[in-house]
């Protein structure tokens, strides 16, 4: 009895800690002001995955869709306890909305093969939509448990999980394979020093090629040998294109996205008529008086 659990994660701009202006004067998003981080709730999904790995001796595969350097969150996942990593990257995926993203991820999950559970963070902090998890479940024809706080039991037949509902919680039973979206109900463990030593050289094909070109070293044979060696050591981050996962080109990227952005505006705070009140008895008295007079108070 062995289990396979897939965790899908995302590298996101750190929208909570913006340095400088979020928008450039030309109206586009200023990515330089937004450092890339591991989406916080995806860390909770990963933590739950690692806990399940420990409890059920599961194989933990982590996947992400993003630009080539999104491999950073995959290495971070390996440092924390994932066994394998898959990067879905292709220019054809660019401009995807949540529908096109969930379709692409469904192709990726099918490519990974048989699994018992897919875990996703509830939502990503760049869009806060919480849509990709449920849409991925639908695309794969899986039942979904949203807002999972903890897993009580996993068997080959079903999973029992505690999930948040408005004003409380539910314990639900659900057959596997299933998809769960995870909320911030656990404390993600930090990277493990042993894992860092083990996986710091883990890389994708692009990264291996780049290392060679940086070293001005173009030996096709050496590439093949090094790739085989990395695979042998479990340090190979599988890099998949749209074609590799058999994605229909009409259903990915901008083309596969029904929603279009009409316009983007910076948030401008409309200044109210502002009155400065002295923090004195007289100041406060006059304020209260004014509020009673205009029926705001009393």
């Amino acid at each position: 009895m062995s289990y396979t659990i897939i965790v899908f994660v995302k590298q996101v701009p750190d929208t909570q800690n913006i340095t400088g202006d979020a928008m450039k004067p030309d109206g586009t998003v200023n990515r330089a002001a937004l450092p890339a981080i591991f989406n916080p709730e995806d860390l909770n999904a990963l933590e739950l995955g690692i806990q399940l790995k420990e409890r059920y001796n599961a194989k933990l595969v982590v996947g992400t869709m993003g630009p080539p350097n999104a491999s950073e969150v995959l290495r971070e996942s390996l440092y924390r306890g994932a066994d394998e990593a898959v990067l879905l990257t292709d220019r054809a995926f660019a401009g995807a909305d949540t529908l096109a993203t969930s379709y692409a991820l469904s192709c990726c999950a099918n490519k990974i093969g048989k699994f018992d559970l897919i875990l996703c963070g509830r939502q990503a902090i760049d869009g806060d939509t919480a849509q990709v998890g449920p849409q991925l479940a639908e695309k794969l024809g899986l039942p979904q448990i949203s807002y999972v706080e903890e897993v009580e039991e996993l068997t080959k037949k079903k999973v029992r999980a505690k999930r948040a509902i408005e004003g409380g919680y539910e314990i639900v039973d659900c057959p596997v394979p299933a998809l769960m979206t995870v909320v911030a109900a656990n404390v993600p463990r930090p990277a493990n020093a042993k894992n860092i030593m083990k996986f710091k050289k883990a890389m994708t094909r692009s990264e291996l090629h780049k290392a060679h070109s940086d070293a001005d070293y173009t030996d096709a044979e050496a590439l093949v040998v090094e790739e085989a060696a990395l695979k042998e050591k479990g340090l190979w981050i599988q890099e998949l294109t749209a074609e590799d996962v058999g994605a229909d080109i009409e259903r990915i990227g901008l083309k596969g996205s029904p929603t279009k952005v009409k316009k983007i505006q910076s948030v401008v705070l409309t200044g109210a008529d502002f009155k400065n009140i002295d923090p004195t008895e007289v100041g406060v008295n006059s304020l209260i008086h004014e509020l009673i007079e205009d029926h705001t108070l009393g």
């Binding site: 949540t98 849509q131 639908e138 949203s146 408005e166 979206t181």
Partner: peptide
């Protein structure tokens, strides 16, 4: 919680666009 898990499930099956957490809705040409 309900609407945010149900909306995407429905939209995905119907192959429709979905926008979460709107704060204003208007009718206009695009």
């Amino acid at each position: 919680n309900k609407g945010r898990e149900l909306g995407p499930r429905v939209a995905s099956e119907l192959l429709c666009g979905l926008t979460a957490d709107c704060t204003e809705l208007e009718i206009d040409d695009f």
